[in-house]
Every structure is written in structure tokens, then in C-alpha cells.
Design a protein around this nucleic acid. Structure first.
Lengths: 155, 155
DNA sequence: CGGAAGTTTCAGTCAATGCTGAATAATGAG
DNA sequence: CTCATTATTCAGCATTGACTGAAACTTCCG
């Protein structure tokens, strides 16, 4: 791994860590975006990232569960091969959209909790709820359109 | 604060903490969305959240810097009054959009680091870069449209 | 100017948690 | 079946960082 690649991997790790993931998850995802060959064993990744096998194992489960990486096997080879598949971007954007959904849900419970207040007092939370609802609806629509156009353009 | 309100505040705190903010920031923001009166002193907030004055001070700076709350003063009253202004939603959505921008920037540096590879090897990161660029452009556009429509509807 | 009320700063504490590394389990080869 | 290799689990460590509380600072009033 060159120093530029290392910087990219580390930067991705730090940034995604700030968004609630672990640094290792960010590093692993970043590495899988630029590694060659694109499919890597746990041992490969552990060596590239200077990380323990245990960390790779746990992080791989995390990333695979959220759809960011794919785990593959080959006949006559017990090792697992990890890669960052194209669909990962769908998952990434999908989880971003899920944030809006969750926020709207929280706001909804909050509105319920203050249901007996005058409308004036509920206005702030109501607006928050409305905006989240709008974004939750529209952002995935725009993303889906982009992905559709892109796959058509490729075909 | 009723138990329902308390749940809302705590839930907001936990959720925003998971997104990289502190629990206290989430609680404070949540509280300012539902409190009555809508403007509260540091002492009011500290009491409502069972938090120290120091925590309120630091969190207030954080939230004010990112535009989520407004700090106001009144003549002949040294206390500061905090509130969640309508513009806060713009800031909130803006910082969400900033995430896409930052990710595209990271991807850009990554692409530079592997510039001498064959195109095939750069495809994964290139696609990531493209998608982030698209979202960075389109999502704010959709949001701006919504805010425009909404303010027109209100006027 | 002196003092009261409020705010900010900061050192210290404590809990949370990401990572390591060794032990354990699982899998395929011979 | 047994062995070698790979994957997973988990207890422990170290680090991080959010919060507290007291001290320092600021500002306004008498």
C-alpha cells in the first residue's frame, strides 16, 4: 500500500468513525474500494491494515450485515473473500435515508407526548416532523432515479 | 417535564449521539423543540436535563456554532436565552448534505492516490465518487425546493 | 468601587467501547 | 479419523471522550 493509499484508507476510517461507525469499518471499506485484487481474504486485509484477525472478523460481520461488503467463497478453498460490490452504494444511500425515517419516527412520538398542548406550542416539533417526512420521501426518489439512469447508461 | 417528554428528549439524545454528536447535544436540541416557554436560560435547561452548567455551556457553544440553536439576550438581564429557531432545520439539512460533500472529497483524494492504475482497477472508487457527487448536487436542490414551497404556502 | 449573579473554563472522574490476542470452534484435506 | 488451516468468540487492555464541579472570569447593579 502506497502512502497515498494509506492516507485514503485512514481518512475514510476516521470520517466514518465520526458518523457512528468504527474506524476499522471505515478503513476496511476504504481498502476494499481500492485494493487489488478486489477480492481479499481476512488475512490479506489484516495485513494491509495492520489489524488483528479478531477485528477483521467482527468488522466484516458488521459491514456484511449492513450490505456494504459481500462475503464470497470458492470451491476447495476454505477462506472467505471480501469485496465491495456495486450494490453497496445502494445500501449506503439507503442507510442515509433511514436516518430521516428514524428522526421522523422520534418526532412523531414526541408529538404524541405533547398532544394536549396548544398548536402554537407544538409548531417547532411539527415543522421538524414535516421536514423529515418530506426528505424521507423525496431523497430516496431522487437517488433511485439516478441509479436507474446510471444503469441504463451503462447497459 | 412529563415522562413522555422525557422519553422524547432522551431518545433524541441517544440517536444523535449515535450520529457523532454528544448525547447532551441531542437532549438539549430535543428539549428546545418542545419546551415551554420556547426560550430558556442555561439554568432552566440544566435543571430540565439534570445536567451540570458546564455541560450546558459547552454544548450550547457546539449547537450554536453549527446553527442549530440561537443565543439571545435581553436588556437588563445578563442571562442568555436559548431557543431552536426555524432556520435550524436549514442547518440540520445542510450539515447532512455536507457529509456527501466530504465523502466525495475523500474519494477524490483517493482517486488521485491511485491515478496510475488501469481504469478497471479504479472503477469502484470512481463510481463511489460519482454517486457522492450526484447526491451532493441534487439533495440540497430538493431540500431548497421544499423550503421554498413551504415558505410560500405559509406567506 | 465592591459585590452579586451568571457564564466559561478546565482538570479530574468515570463509563463506554474499539482493538488485541489467545483460546475455541469449524471446515476441508489426506 | 486426524491434522492443518481458517474463522469466530471473548476476556482484558487501553484509549477516548462526555460529564461534573469548582475555580476563574465577566458583567451589571447599587
Amino acid at each position: 500500500m502506497t502512502s497515498g493509499e494509506s492516507e485514503f484508507v485512514e481518512e475514510m476510517g476516521q470520517y466514518l468513525a465520526g458518523l457512528g461507525m468504527t474506524p476499522m469499518a471505515g478503513r476496511m471499506w476504504g481498502w476494499l474500494l481500492i485494493c487489488d485484487p478486489p477480492e481479499q481474504t481476512a488475512a490479506d486485509i489484516a495485513e494491509a491494515l495492520n489489524a488483528s484477525r479478531g477485528a477483521i472478523s467482527g468488522t466484516a460481520r458488521l459491514l456484511a450485515t449492513s450490505g456494504l461488503i459481500r462475503r464470497g467463497t470458492r470451491r476447495g478453498d476454505r477462506r472467505e473473500y471480501f469485496s465491495a460490490p456495486p450494490e453497496a452504494l445502494d445500501s449506503l444511500l439507503g442507510s442515509a435515508a433511514a436516518i430521516y425515517h428514524h428522526m421522523r419516527a422520534i418526532a412523531e412520538r414526541g408529538l404524541h407526548a405533547i398532544a394536549d398542548r396548544p398548536a402554537e406550542s407544538k409548531a417547532r416539533l411539527q415543522e421538524f416532523y414535516d421536514v423529515m417526512g418530506f426528505v424521507e420521501r423525496e431523497v430516496p426518489r431522487v437517488i433511485a432515479q439516478f441509479l436507474r439512469e446510471r444503469s441504463e447508461g451503462k447497459a
